[in-house]
C-alpha cells in the first residue's frame, strides 16, 4: 500500500465504482420499482414528434454466463442526431446542424418478466472520429446491474450499414474478426412503421459482447 503526500501534484484518483445493485430502479427508473415520485422521469424514448430522422426501435436482452436472462439490468444510450452531431458543446463539427428536439440520451431497463429492453430513437448519422476518419452510425451503450462492479461500455452498430461498418475505425480495432459481429444489431423489418433492430448483450461466455475501456 502506498500513499501519496498530501501536496502531491499528481492527479487525484477517480472515486471507486460500485455495483448498481438489484434496486437501481428506485433511483433511476422509479416507475419500474413500483412507484411514482418525480414529475419528470428519464426514460427510453429519445424522440418527440419534432425530432428529425428515421424512427427506429432498438430492443434486446442481457444474458449472463449461463445463458440466463438478466432481468434487473439498466441500460443507457448516447448517440448523435440524424446529421451525425452530438447535443453537447464539445461537438464543434462544422456543417452538421444541431436538432433542438433531440438530446441523444435515454435510459431503459430489462423487464422483470420478459427480460426485454427497448429504446425508441432515430438512426444516428455518421460522426467524424479520430484523425478525420468517419465512424459508422452507432449508439453508445452502457450497462449496469447487480453483479456488475463497473458499468460496461459497448457500441451498437447496424447490419444495414455494411460499407460504413467495414471502414469504421473502432470496429477495425477489434483484432478478432469473429468478435466484431457481437456489436452489429440485426434488423428485423418494420413494425408499425418503425424499423426494429435486435441487440442482445452477452456478458460472458460464447458470443460474449465486446466491451470497451473508453
Amino acid at each position: 500500500m502506498s500513499f501519496r503526500p498530501i501536496d502531491s501534484p499528481l492527479p487525484l484518483r477517480e472515486t471507486a465504482s460500485q455495483t448498481a445493485g438489484p434496486y437501481v430502479h428506485i433511483g433511476l427508473a422509479p416507475r419500474q420499482a413500483g412507484f411514482e415520485i418525480f414529475e419528470n422521469d428519464f426514460g427510453p424514448v429519445l424522440v418527440t414528434p419534432q425530432t428529425r430522422g428515421r424512427r427506429i426501435r432498438i430492443e434486446g436482452t442481457v444474458i449472463d454466463g449461463s445463458g440466463t436472462l438478466v432481468r434487473d439490468a439498466l441500460l443507457e444510450c448516447w448517440q448523435a442526431n440524424a446529421d451525425g452531431r452530438y447535443a453537447h458543446p464539445g461537438d464543434r463539427q462544422s456543417g452538421q446542424p444541431l436538432d433542438p428536439a433531440f438530446r441523444g440520451w435515454g435510459r431503459a431497463c430489462t423487464d422483470f418478466d420478459t427480460g426485454l429492453y427497448a429504446f425508441d430513437t432515430i438512426k444516428p448519422g455518421r460522426v467524424v472520429g479520430r484523425n478525420g476518419r468517419r465512424m459508422a452510425p452507432h449508439v453508445n451503450l452502457w450497462v449496469v446491474a447487480r453483479g456488475i462492479n463497473l458499468g460496461l461500455n459497448t457500441r451498437i452498430y447496424f447490419d444495414d450499414e455494411p460499407e460504413a461498418n467495414a471502414e469504421d475505425p473502432v470496429i477495425n480495432l477489434i483484432e478478432w474478426q469473429v468478435r466484431r459481429q457481437t456489436l452489429i444489431a440485426r434488423s428485423e423489418g418494420e413494425r408499425d412503421g418503425v424499423m426494429v433492430y435486435r441487440f442482445d448483450v452477452r456478458l460472458q461466455g460464447e458470443g460474449e459482447t465486446v466491451f470497451f475501456d473508453v
Binding site: G65, T68, A145, G147, N149, R179, Q204, V210, F211
Partner: peptide
Amino acid sequence: SVLRSPRN
C-alpha cells in the same frame, strides 16, 4: 459477479 463478468 461470477456469471455477470466478461471473460475477455
